[in-house]
Amino acid sequence: MRISVQDSSFDLGAETAAFAQAQNSLGAIVTFTGVVRDTPDHALEVMEIEHYPGMTEKAISSIAEQAIKRFGLGDALIIHRHGRLAPGDVIMMVATAARHRRDAFDGAEFLMDYLKSRAPFWKREVGHDGATWVEARDEDEDALSRWSES
């Protein structure tokens, strides 16, 4: 398992290849890449992402360990950027590996839903008309709720 919270960009292809190469005994690898998107109602110039070093990595590591246990993942990789990012910039990636594809897909979705709704990042969109903090959306909370254990 590797968690990286960084301000620098990363080579998506190299990260994916290195992760895949390390998975000798697993049959499924799933990757997801998040990209900063412009918003139709707010011409986005940059997204500013803040976090508390140490706290953020600890929280993400904890949820990654839960995903590994819950879905039987053999490995997981999470890279999330912070700082000033422009539309089109890669903001994050998740990679999961498991013996079977459903576990790899479910593990990746679980991690992405957590990162979107609960990871300790604070995002502010800066556009031509000013800056606004990004608030949690109902659909993100709904996505996360499907993972609640009954």
Rank of each mutant, 00 (worst) to 15 (best):
H80Q: 00
S117K: 06
F121W: 11
E139Y: 11
W133V: 14
S61W: 01
D38N: 14
G130F: 02
V94M: 05
K58N: 05
M47A: 12
D138F: 13
F71N: 09
G83W: 09
D140F: 07
W133S: 14
T16R: 12
K116Y: 09
S62D: 06
Q6I: 12
R81S: 03
V94W: 00
R137D: 11
E48W: 13
A119K: 02
V94H: 01
K123G: 06
S4T: 10
V36P: 06
G74K: 04
S9E: 12
I79P: 00
D106I: 02
S145N: 14
A76R: 00
D129M: 00
A43R: 14
T33A: 11
L44G: 03
E135L: 11
G74L: 08
M1S: 08
S145H: 13
S4V: 13
A95G: 15
G54I: 14
I68Q: 06
D142T: 07
I29K: 04
V30L: 05
D11F: 14
E65H: 03
V30S: 07
A95E: 05
D103S: 15
D113M: 08
R124A: 11
F105K: 09
D103I: 06
S117M: 06
D129L: 00
A14M: 10
G127H: 02
I79H: 00
V126G: 01
A20N: 06
H80W: 00
V90K: 04
D113R: 02
K123I: 11
S9V: 12
R37I: 01
R84I: 09
G88D: 11
D140V: 08
G72A: 07
D106S: 15
K69T: 15
S145T: 12
G74I: 04
S9K: 09
D7T: 12
F10P: 07
G83A: 09
